[in-house]
């Protein structure tokens, strides 16, 4: 087992050499690359990466350029996870036969995918990877919408959000269904480590990533990625919006170990009302009309009861 990179504070972390390059075509202020950097910089080991179709893939591999300084592959929308799982299986086979050129260098296997490629389209493939127990990490860049194709709803889109296939209008308040609880689903696969992280809490996130690299077996990371284009806020506010999301408990940060034990990894000092988080984004603008105002109250009640549920699970150690 290779050594875990020591990251005590941000100054020490800032000596890392990025393996993800600029002049990619992600929007200014996109949280995707903040997440990718925090994942890649969490280790000094070699990396074998993949990306499913999505913003990250189309923006970082625009022929004739690549923005990746590590082995990286893209195949299709659904099979980013299985591409890496296949590489991991081959690595193990070559290792067993003693045919690795540098057997002392143990690479890390990471697949990146958006929420569309994880919650909907690639779900079956990810489930397969986790069932087979590959030693890999799947990182979801959860921006709650198909941002790459123009903002269609995905099964991660929350209630009341206006997406292009569930637009808000005179009658409709936008998306009708609530977000899928992907973490519980992946934990139920018996994965050794499952965590929800946010890039604005970098220390929390890097700790989760390093723990994910340290365990044997499939690891699922759900990273919140604030989308300036589809959530409709100014590009410089990415970190502010992310802070609001974690502090209003819309995105509670927690981990589930061995599918059994839930730990809350971040408790905001001052919990802010959900209304503030909703008001900051254009996609929830219509909720502040009189006819839809009742939804804000429902939001708050749902978030409160979810937080209560997480706390009870943590206390009970299940």
């Amino acid at each position: 087992m290779s050594e875990i990179k020591k990251i005590k504070n941000l100054k020490e972390f800032s000596t890392s050499a990025d393996r993800f390059e600029g002049a990619n075509l992600l929007c200014p202020g996109c949280a995707h690359s903040i997440i990718v950097r925090e994942v890649l910089n969490a280790t000094n080991d070699d990396l074998i990466l993949s990306a499913a179709t999505g913003c990250l893939e189309v923006c970082t591999a625009v022929y004739p350029y690549t923005s990746w300084d590590a082995s990286w592959i893209h195949i299709g929308f659904e099979n980013g996870s299985t591409a890496v799982a296949g590489a991991e299986a081959m690595y193990n086979a070559l290792k067993k036969k003693g045919r690795l050129k540098q057997p002392d260098r143990e690479p890390k296997f990471v697949s990146f995918a958006g929420d569309g490629a994880s919650y909907d389209i690639g779900f079956q493939w990810i489930s397969g990877c986790f069932e087979r127990g590959h030693n890999m990490m799947h990182v979801v860049l959860d921006n709650e919408v198909y941002a790459n194709t123009g903002g269609q709803r995905s099964s991660s889109t929350p209630i009341g959000s206006s997406a292009t296939t569930s637009p808000a209008g005179r009658v409709s308040y936008g998306e009708k269904k609530n977000k899928k609880d992907m973490l519980s689903i992946m934990a139920a696969h018996g994965a050794p480590y499952v965590a929800q992280v946010a890039p604005n809490k970098w220390k929390n996130m890097v700790k989760a990533i390093q723990q994910g690299f340290a365990v044997e077996g499939p690891v699922f990371i759900n990273a919140m990625s604030a989308c300036t284009t589809e959530w409709k806020f100014a590009p410089e506010d990415t970190i502010d919006i992310s802070d609001m999301a974690t502090d209003s408990l819309v995105f509670p940060l927690y981990e589930i170990i061995d599918g059994k034990k839930l730990n809350i990894t971040y408790r905001p000092k001052n919990v802010i009302p959900v209304e503030e988080y909703l008001a900051a984004q254009g996609r929830f603008k219509h909720l502040f009309k009189d006819q839809f105002k009742y939804l804000i109250k429902e939001w708050q009640e749902r978030i409160d009861s979810n937080w209560d549920y997480l706390q009870r699970r943590e206390e009970a150690g299940v």
């Binding site: 020490e12 390059e21 200014p28 590009p235």
Partner: peptide, 26 residues
């Protein structure tokens, strides 16, 4: 840590400048 475009140049724990080729001005 929060620059999405790897445009803040830090060496030896010191911030030394902005990479103007890759900064998108967010």
């Amino acid at each position: 840590i929060y620059c999405p475009d790897m445009s803040i140049i830090s060496r030896d724990k010191k911030m030394i400048g902005v990479d103007m080729d890759h900064c998108k001005g967010c």
